[in-house]
Design a protein around this nucleic acid. Structure first.
Lengths: 161, 161
DNA sequence: AAAAATTAGGTAAATCCTACCAAAATTCGT
DNA sequence: ACGAATTTTGGTAGGATTTACCTAATTTTT
């Protein structure tokens, strides 16, 4: 509760845990050349301070039957804050929309959607997404290949103030 | 090594581990109403068969100093497979490009990029991304708000053949 | 330079993992 | 439908890990 910034140890810990979220504390401690006690304490601290939001298992999308992934750009009717809120709330409920961002630039929202196959996606896009409140435009970008799947954020030394 | 499909237990396990990748085996077993032994065995099996690719810590992007996230649509010069490969390889090296997809639709690639602030992003976009081989068009979509951050894939019973 | 505060390292009890075994349930052939 | 074979389950115990606590070392402050 003093410095509020990340030192080199923290950076090593966060980098390592992003690669292997189930590494044992002992192995982690060895990796960063520290004994187990202070290492464990730092991890707990990073968790308590919410630098680490949580831990997740990463699944093979295709193996669990989700052969199709699509990014959808969506524009909604402007001039209605209520409509936007409603849109956001409804999107939140959709399990097949695995991520959704409000974006600047040309579109209003970027949705990341998964489906077992093209037919399922078409059905979902037409009867669910299209029917969301206030939709004006919609453009699908099909993922042909995951060149670089998301793994981790680069953790760098925070710029001094 | 018999069925090759996911039963209800597997689905519960995968769903739970996507939410909490560090849950203890005992707690997981209780959650799915199974004793620890078979639960542990199933998890190991799901790991061995690569339904589970790994475990990761999820960090708070802003807390680690990455205030800006942008999706960039990029079109590259067509008619050159070699150029595309080169592009992919170079993108792979860029730490600030946290994800990259080859996409159908209007654009060729979708890049997910992070940066500490707008200035850093501008610098990165101009002097690094713009200079990638074969770039024809480039359009940035700034993330204003993460309506629904990616957490997990929906795991459903696989359709019987 | 001494005192205070912070961080590191060690230790031990509690918990958890993990490999093994036996029991139960299921499948299969007859 | 029955018994044999196979698969799956539940229990157990040794080993590893976690986690709280204490002391020593280091750094910071005055």
């Amino acid at each position: 509760m003093t410095d509020e910034a990340l030192n080199l140890t923290d950076i090593k810990i966060l980098t390592t845990l992003q690669q292997d979220g189930r590494i044992t504390n002992q192995a982690l401690a060895e990796r960063i050349n520290m004994s187990a006690s202070p290492c464990w304490r730092r991890v707990k601290q990073l968790e308590d301070e919410h630098y680490i939001q949580g831990y997740r298992a990463v699944l093979d999308r295709r193996k669990i039957g989700l052969g199709v992934m699509v990014f959808i750009r969506i524009k909604i009717d402007r001039h209605s804050e209520a409509e936007a809120k409603k849109f956001e709330q409804e999107v939140m409920q959709l399990q097949d929309v695995v991520a959704c961002y409000s974006i600047g630039g040309d579109a209003d929202f970027l949705l990341q959607v998964v489906a077992p196959d093209l037919d399922s996606f078409a059905e979902f896009a037409m009867s669910i997404v299209r029917q969301l409140p206030g939709i004006k435009e919609m453009q699908s970008m099909f993922v042909l290949k995951e060149i670089k799947p998301f793994v981790s954020f680069p953790v760098k030394r925070l710029r001094a103030v």
